[in-house]
Structures are given as structure tokens and as C-alpha cells.
Amino acid sequence: MVSVGVLLLAYAFAVAPVTTSRLRDEPASHRPAPAEQQDSVVTAEANGLAPADPILSAPPGQQLFPPVGKAFIGAFTQQGPYDFTALDTFTAAAKHQPQVMLFSAGWAADQFDRTPFDRIKDRGMLPMLGWEPWDYRLDVAARKKRLSAREIDKLRSNQPAYRLSRIARGDFDSYLRSWAEGIKSLGYPVAIRFAHEMNGFWYPWCESVNGNRKGDYVKAWRHVHDLFQAAGATNVSWVWSPNARWSRSTPKLSALYPGDDYVDWVGATGYYGTGAFSRYRSFDSIFNPTIKEIRTFSSKPMVITETGASDGHKRKAEWIKEAFRVLPGHKDIIGLIWFEVNKELDWRIVSSSAAAKAFAQSVAGPRYQFTWSPEMVPRTALGG
């Protein structure tokens, strides 16, 4: 189960794990929205979007994750929990121990294996699984043929075997149950980011492709969630994570939202440096329209589930500093996961000493200084 490389920002990850020694060369995902969709993005106000501070209660003797007034820093690397070399390099450059690690698994190739989860947990990080209902190997094959981005999108998104209606009607229930029982057996919290970037067109679980229909995404999500609940896998924090709005023509997010009873954290993915965000756009310019839209239908804690910056205009360090300068104003954002991968574009903080320094200085503040432990209770609500 794991993920890999980056496509650019509009894609999302595809990866597969089998053994901890296996190296990953599959695409992991994400690139900003395709260039042909470079609509103007209206910059929302930097302030006033966040709901009230998180609820300050947890069961007696247990601490919330993240603690009150804190926000976690997470990382995604190409090899994920199968080779921690890139994570160690990131940690050294950031001078900060990440509290979350994101990795991916695809339904066609990956069976449940507790090893990646345990390896992440033993490193002092909450495991976040990017769980992807598709066959990522079709994407790998298309890239090896050096097809155009448009051709790759068309091939990777057309996978009738993984149509949303099939998930909702129970065709994958045996597979889902094996994962639910496995994750329950871990005995510590995990987060699952299921079928992310559903508001795009580049995955077979997006409603605009693959023979899917309006409403199918919510039905599929609820079916998967309910099966986990029935199996007693209550140690899961469910993360709903669309792509940051890059065009006014993208689907309304409210129609894709399963509901607060089915979601623990809302998220968003966005990058500076390609597609609709090729020219310089601040963190708020990229994310605020999406945050503002989500806040019309949910007040769940928010996570920036993937972000990164390229240095095409030599403004990467500037972007990093600016992003962390405004983050404390978003009191509902409880964490940020950095895409530490060099593929097609170099999103890594280690790409330059200036970027590494900017990141290290930014996360040195007390807001990000705390340690995750399996005994902590993931925050699931915001309140007064």
C-alpha cells in the first residue's frame, strides 16, 4: 500500500504496497489543475472564514490530536513507509518531526498489510491512508508510453470495474471488510482519505467520468463508511478531500459531501506552481475559495491534505513563508501535509537551501511543537 511520485497538481496518487522492501515507481499523484482550465480564481478574504476554536473536551486522561491551539505538520514521500530515507531528509531539513504521514493504496493491487501502519506509528506519526478505488497500473502503463496529459486523464479515469455504483451496491464488500477488520486490529487511530479529489475528472471515482452519475459519490462513501462501522473499525478518522477549486465550472462541493455524520475531517489539496496556479498565487488565493465554499455546509476540522510549491519563478521560499504566516488565522485548519516529492516538478523543501530554511523557520513556532501518540484522540468537531 503506498503511494508515489507526483503528476502535477490535478492528479492524485496511485500507489501500491506489497512488501516493505518493494520500491515504488508508480505515480503517486497530484499536480495542479490542467492548463486548459486556468479560470480566474477569486481571492477570498484572508480573515473571517474560520469557525470557532475546536472543542476543548476529550475523554478523561486522554489528549486531543492535535492539542488545543496546535496544528500538525505531515509529509508524503515517494517511498512512504517502505523507505524512510526521504522522510529523514525532510525531517532534518525542516528541523521538525512530522506528526502525520500520508501514504496510498490502490484497490486493484493492494491487500491489507499492517506493516506500513505500524512503521509509521513506531516513528511517532499518525498514519493517514490515501485509499484509492482503482487500478493505478493502468496509469503507470500510460505514462510509460509517454502519452499526453489529456490522453492519460482519459485512460486513467475510464475504469468501469471501479464505477461508484458498484462500490455502493456491495461488489467490493469482501475486500472492504478485510481492510476494516485489519485496521480495527491495529488498536490505534488512523486516518483514511478515501477517494480524494472527487471534484475533478482524472479519477474513475469522479462523478463526471467512468459512467458515474450525480449522487453516486456520496452513496459509495456512505457505504464504505457504514461497512467499517459495522465491522467495529471505529479507530478511523474519515477525511473528505476535494481538489482546491481551480475554475468556476467545477462541481459544487456540497453535492459531493457525504455529511458531517460520515466525515471527521474536511480537507483540500492545492499547489503553487502549475496549471491554474502557475503564476504566483498566495496560499489564501489558492485555498480560500474552497474553504469558504466548504464552510457553507460543514464546520468539521480542516486539513490541507496535500500542498507544495515549485520554484519556477524563484518564489518558493517566499510562498512557504507567506503560507505559514497566514495559517494561524485559519483557526479551523488543524494540520498541513507537505508533498515532499520530486517528479515532473520538484515540490520538496530540500530542493533549495532557501526553501528548507523558510520551512524550518516557519514550523519552529510553538503552534507546531507537540508529539503525537497513539493514545491521543483525534479532534472531530469545532465548537464555541
Rank of each mutant, 00 (worst) to 15 (best):
K300E: 12
T290C: 08
S299V: 15
D284F: 00
V303T: 11
D346C: 09
L327Y: 07
I334P: 01
K316V: 08
D284W: 00
H330G: 06
E340Y: 02
K292E: 15
A323N: 07
E306A: 13
V326W: 07
E344K: 14
R295C: 12
D346T: 04
N342S: 06
M302I: 12
T307K: 02
H330I: 02
W319R: 00
L345A: 15
G335F: 10
T290Y: 03
M302A: 06
D284I: 07
I286E: 09
D332R: 03
R348H: 07
R295V: 11
K316S: 01
K300Q: 11
E340S: 01
A309Q: 14
V326S: 06
F297W: 10
N288A: 15
L336Q: 07
A317Y: 03
E293W: 05
K321L: 13
V326Y: 09
S310R: 13
S282R: 05
T307F: 07
A309G: 14
D284N: 15
D332S: 08
T296W: 10
D332A: 05
S282A: 07
N342L: 00
G329V: 01
E293N: 08
F297Y: 13
L327R: 02
P328I: 05
K331Y: 02
L345V: 14
E344D: 11
E293A: 14
M302K: 11
T305E: 09
N288R: 06
W338Q: 06
E340N: 05
R281W: 15
F324D: 05
R348V: 10
I334F: 03
V326A: 03
M302P: 00
V341Q: 03
R295Y: 11
F283L: 15
I286S: 11
E344G: 05
I349Y: 01
F287T: 12
R325A: 14
I291H: 07
E322F: 01
I337W: 02
W319F: 10
A323Y: 03
S285V: 01
G308Y: 04
W338D: 09
S285D: 08
K316T: 04
K292I: 08
T290R: 00
N342Q: 01
R295K: 09
D311Y: 02
D284T: 14
K321E: 10
S351M: 04
I286L: 09
